[in-house]
Design a protein around this nucleic acid. Sequence first.
RNA 1: GGAGAAGUACCCAAGUCGGCUGAAGGGGAUGGUUUGCUAAACCAUUAGUAGGGGCAACUCUAGCCCGGGUUCGAAUCCCGGCUUCUCCGCCA
Length: 431
Amino acid sequence: MLDMNLIREDPKKVADALAKRNCAVDFTGLLSWDKERRELIYDVEQLKAKRNKVSADIPRLKKQGDDVSGLMEEMKGTGDRIRASDERIGALETQITGFLAALPNMPADDVVAGDKENNEVVRVWGEAPVFSFPFKNHVDLVTALGLIDYERGVKLGGNGFWLYRGDGALLEWALVNYFIEEHIKDGYEFILPPHILTYQCGYTAGQFPKFDGDVFTLTQPEGRGEGAAFSQFILPTAETALVNVHRDEVLDEDELPKKYFAYTPCYRKEAGSARAEERGMIRGHQFNKVEMVQYTLPEDSDRALAELVGKAERLVRGLGLHYRVSKLAAEDCGASMAKTFDIEVWLPSMGIYKEVSSASNAMDYQARRGNIRFKRKATRKNELVHTLNASGLATSRIFPALVEQFQREDGSVPVPPVLQKWVGKEVLTSV
RNA sequence: GGAGAAGUACCCAAGUCGGCUGAAGGGGAUGGUUUGCUAAACCAUUAGUAGGGGCAACUCUAGCCCGGGUUCGAAUCCCGGCUUCUCCGCCA
């Protein structure tokens, strides 16, 4: 959520920033609602002050034996006017909040305008493997090795699902363990959150109301979820859970930064996005991911973003995979994010780099939606925290990259040394 | 899932048949007095927050789980919801 005060003070600045992500906004309507709202508040508060005063007078006058029926009659009208104004104010606030809630975050100053084509590669690590033999794509490799069973996955869950089996399950779980171990070393707190979340969680994260069609939802008895078509949903990423941990809280300045990570499967509809080249596990309805989230002081969030990018990179490097880091252009950033770096791993079969981690700084955008604050010692005032998140990492992109980049001519795949203690093997071979 | 009970400030807790109670009383915390040190005692302070107006001093409004309603006036009455606790049922 953007700051209404900022829009009121400098609407052009906000509009210009949003224009970078190809989001054209006209604030004239919003500003007139805001103006009307404030005028009404002023009026109605005068009336309320009067009502409070008269209500205090009535029992006193009564005691003196005065007739108060005229006064009461007069106040009846005041009560009606107050009610009418409050209703109008409520309606305006609904409009204002609805308008603001639909707006994406402002890109940071150093984020360039435009879409993907303006993304900037800031770092490349390693080199794409050169194969002296006809190399295979990950679907063929993992099927031949018996690591992933696509056919039975579809039988069980429908299109877009697979199942890990045997060494495949071990390899998948080894990745998760490796990530967990590294985050623990760095002092992050391990969280296992609910996988079913309330609507409010999606709202705070900035996924709702705009993208509420992308998640699997649960219908619930009415009365919950406040006008939404559903009240609970299955999380599309652990970020949605982690960023809500401190919703509606005021943290101590000393507690920051809060550093969390969580493992969860991620459930996404991915409706209509299946493409032939995204076969296999590149884009499924369910994939495993370890997610990092930080709550920081506003002045520390840039540094925290660098830390998160560094951590995600270290994980990929630890596996020995060739990757690059891109700084995203405004339009390619998630709606809640002011700045995003993608860590992209090389997939030989696709001949492209594919995102394995997205590290972003939401600044105060999510904090304002979720009312997540801290008490600033120096001023004794509450301020919004900054929230950041980064995958660390998504296995579903790492797994294919790993088997594709490391494959040998005979179809076997060596297990990266850091994973061997969990897989229990140095090489995966077909039986 | 069924039946009861409860939700008041940092914590506990009182709130009488609706009216100077935006909240008695404890505890805790903070400051002070006393004091060789500690303990104890005593005194004082202690909603936080959000939203308006004002250059400012300041002032107003909201706020007793949440949302509605009744009323001149609601912590108090009515309706809906959420959460917690106890008992029963069901179960990994």
